[in-house]
Amino acid sequence: MTNSRTAFLGFMAFAGLALTAPLAHAQTGRATLDASTAGTIIAACEAYAEAHELELTIAVFDEGANLQALSRMDGAILASLEIAQWKGRTAANLGQLTGGLGAAALDRPEIYHVPGLATLQGGVPIRTVDGVLIGGVGASGADSADDEACAMAGIMAAGLTYQRAGAE
């Protein structure tokens, strides 16, 4: 009886594997932003900020606009915590520079009424070298142009880009 029970359980385990094996390959892999890369972006952005004597908060979001990493440098104003997240989340959600939204709002003022949409420079999308959107970085605490330059420096230091494929 033990041998037949063992044989039956073995058969069921084999059948279970055989049925689920094709399902394991049903989904194709896609690029994602991991914690290590988010940390690299933060560290590089902080190095850029220190070299330019800036005191910033940096927020890194993944492709689902979920916060991956957050750093408030010594001396960064408290409000920069919220503003950096606002910018980074917008960049991750829309896949474009947040400063461009401010320019677009000049012709389309309704943009200013979209809840949670950052229109200041400093939110930068994170893309793979193939142009696939995998997140966004927000920096805040300095002039908006400096915030944006810092976020871009962090992204590029991680071997990624903020541009769509084919853009120069």
Rank of each mutant, 00 (worst) to 15 (best):
S4Q: 08
W86V: 02
A21H: 11
P115Y: 11
G123Q: 07
A59C: 07
A65Q: 01
A21Q: 14
L97H: 08
L120P: 02
S80E: 03
A91S: 05
L120V: 01
I155S: 07
G123L: 11
D34M: 01
N93Y: 01
I58P: 01
I41M: 09
T32A: 05
G99P: 12
G135F: 02
F14R: 03
L70S: 00
G29R: 10
S140H: 01
Q27L: 11
A21L: 13
G136V: 06
F14T: 14
A31V: 02
V114A: 09
A105G: 08
H113E: 07
A65I: 05
I126Y: 06
R108N: 13
L81I: 15
A157T: 08
I58W: 04
L120I: 08
S144R: 02
T28D: 15
F61P: 00
G131F: 03
H25G: 11
A92F: 01
A153S: 12
Q96Y: 11
D143W: 00
E55C: 04
K87D: 03
G159R: 13
E63A: 14
R127E: 09
E110R: 00
T2E: 08
T40H: 10
A43R: 11
G75H: 09
R72W: 10
I126M: 06
G16A: 10
T20D: 03
A84G: 09
G10Q: 11
A145T: 10
A76K: 02
L94T: 12
T32M: 09
G159V: 11
L67V: 02
L70F: 15
L94E: 03
A47D: 15
E53H: 14
A92Y: 04
A76P: 02
D62F: 08
L70W: 15
A167M: 14
L120F: 04
G39S: 10
G138D: 06
G166S: 05
Y112V: 00
S144P: 10
F8L: 15
T57H: 00
E110A: 04
G136R: 03
V132E: 15
T20V: 13
L94V: 12
D74N: 01
H25F: 14
L33H: 04
H25N: 13
A165P: 09
D74F: 06
Q121N: 07
G64P: 02
A91N: 09
G16Y: 04
Q27Y: 05
R164Y: 09
A38Y: 14
I111E: 00
I111V: 05
L97A: 12
T119N: 06
I155E: 04
Q96W: 10
G29I: 03
